[in-house]
Amino acid sequence: MPAGAGAKKLLLLAGVGLAVLMLVGFIFGAIGSAMFGTDQFLEKPEIHLSPQPVYPASTRNESLHLDDHTVELYSEAREQGKEKEEAAEEAGIHFEPLSASKFAVTNTLISAWFATIVIILFFVLGSRKRSIVPGRLQAVIEFLYEGVLGFCSSVLGPEMARRAFPVIATIFFFVLFNAWLALLPIYQFVGFVFDGEIKAHFLKSAGTDLNMPLALALISFVFVEYYGLRAHGLGYFKKFFAFGKLLRGKPSGLIDVFVGFLEGVSELVRVVSFTFRLFGNMTAGEILVIMITFLVPFVATQFVFGLELLVGLIQAVIFASLTVVFLSVAIRHEEH
């Protein structure tokens, strides 16, 4: 970067360029086309809450209702000069989510595998040398480790933090990498095309698939309850089934029973809240990116990307730290 006046000039030029690009995006985006009648740069995006099956191909076509019959109806409708949307509707081509028990490789699952591979490459390569004096990558990874380990230690104490670290760190990095990798443009423009339109994306942010947050929530739940049981033995269940006082004939024991019931409910509700918090945030982020890109195709998206980077980090921190906190509550010995 040149120094002084040159740098300022360059910065100014870049600013003007970006502003022009944004203006062009505005004019050829959805808002501009509605105001000035310009041709839209992008077609109206289709938004699905559920993941789309991509493999095997037969399942994909089935979920999209693409078969010989519908395709024929569609092309007939197109020949009659109908718009794509109308023709698809007439032919009955529409997306239907996978039924709850049917297996298929969904685009979210592929993106989760992608994230998994990236994480493994990043961490295994980064910790391959294991030198006392770290290189750059190792230093970054150590920084991340020490961040997670430090937080765990501050809540759980050093010994328990060491035991909990792998699960907490994996949750954190899995959520983080899934959220951040989903901002890559490849998620938006690679897919299975029918008549010039992407009917099913090859990749879709794994966080937007309810199953992924649910799986993490279940793991977090099992992890917490396991250590709770280990710390208290079978007495751990007394927290939920507090009949002790009532059986001794004290009527106030009813309160304990009720509190125990509430404890149990709150424990289970955590799974739901974990799931929908992550799912909601990731889905909202994806929709926001898609909608802003549709409304103003250039430059404006960058701000949303910045926001989504932050949201991804926050969600990863929340998921990991809530697990830590719940764990600390579960293993805590109550003073009587």
Binding site: S50, S101, P166, I219
Partner: peptide, 27 residues
């Protein structure tokens, strides 16, 4: 919303594998 049993199991397996690999080779 996309609740799907096999997907859920796939994610669980995926996570456990990731956890195992990272624990052994990275953590």
């Amino acid at each position: 919303l996309g609740i799907n049993g096999p997907s859920l199991i796939a994610y669980l397996i995926n996570f456990v594998l990731l956890l195992g690999i990272l624990t052994l080779f990275a953590y």
